[in-house]
Design a binder for these strands. Structure first.
Lengths: 129, 129
DNA sequence: CGATAATCAGTAATGATTACTATTTTGTGG
DNA sequence: CCACAAAATAGTAATCATTACTGATTATCG
């Protein structure tokens, strides 16, 4: 039991892209291969795939959600000038963090680390039921 | 030269809050002290203060921007059940990361690290001009 | 005071995302 | 091969946080 034709196309597009595209950008690309695809379908399928864990959502605070086909652990560097999202390897981030980045020409200014999961209160509640 | 009365009130509200409130929540709170304040003013002043670096924006992907009066380096833990944003100390995050968190009852599932700054290309361009 | 700039309230506009509905596609069991 | 139920889709309308705009108000500083 595989994904539908459209969903497969959207998945392939995200997986093959290196640019962390938005839903709109993915829509514009897949329209070339499946001209009457709808934007709603792109959103629905992207959410489906993200929920299934085969792609990853990236929220960098530029009003649009970006998508990443690489679900292996890595960080992102967002350029405040051009807006591009660069992939950062784990080893270039933790321990002497900025050193490696700066050596590659990046100028890090600010960092956001967000962990998602279940908080102690909700975990306790769940265990009790 | 200080901030205006409204701006001061909004700053104080964010600084004294521990709950990482949204613009709407801040608006509702300050309305109690300055009843005819406008939502637009709250947004404008929050953006002004964030731009000035005295408060911090947090984008956790729940459609609303949250604000944090604590600008010292720390991470955030977002509960996928209740949506609450918990502060995480730096030392509880890096090195044996999850160990400390789990010991406190957190169940970490996913982590997003985003670094903001200038990318090598834009830095090069800037230097050339 | 008085001119000038900053700030504001209130409301309208924006734009990414989601919801909805009628139609089409798909898969399954006979 | 076919009928039929479930899933997916196109196209459009609705949502809703945020921003833009406008005319009025307030602060600043000579």
């Amino acid at each position: 039991m595989n994904y539908s034709r459209q969903r497969e196309l959207i998945l392939k597009t995200v997986k093959e892209s290196k640019s962390h595209p938005t839903a709109q950008e993915i829509y514009e690309f897949v329209k070339g291969k499946s001209p009457n695809i709808s934007l709603g379908t792109v959103y629905r399928d992207l959410n489906f795939l993200a929920e299934a864990g085969v792609i990853r959502r990236i929220d960098v605070g530029d009003k649009q959600i970006h998508f990443d086909g690489d679900i292996l652990e890595h960080c992102h560097f967002v350029c405040l000038d051009c807006g591009r999202i660069h992939d950062i390897e784990r080893k270039d981030f933790c321990r002497d963090e900025n050193k490696n980045l700066i050596a590659k020409g990046f100028v890090p200014l600010r960092k956001d680390v967000i962990i998602y999961g279940q908080c102690p209160l909700c975990n306790k509640k769940e265990k009790e039921n």
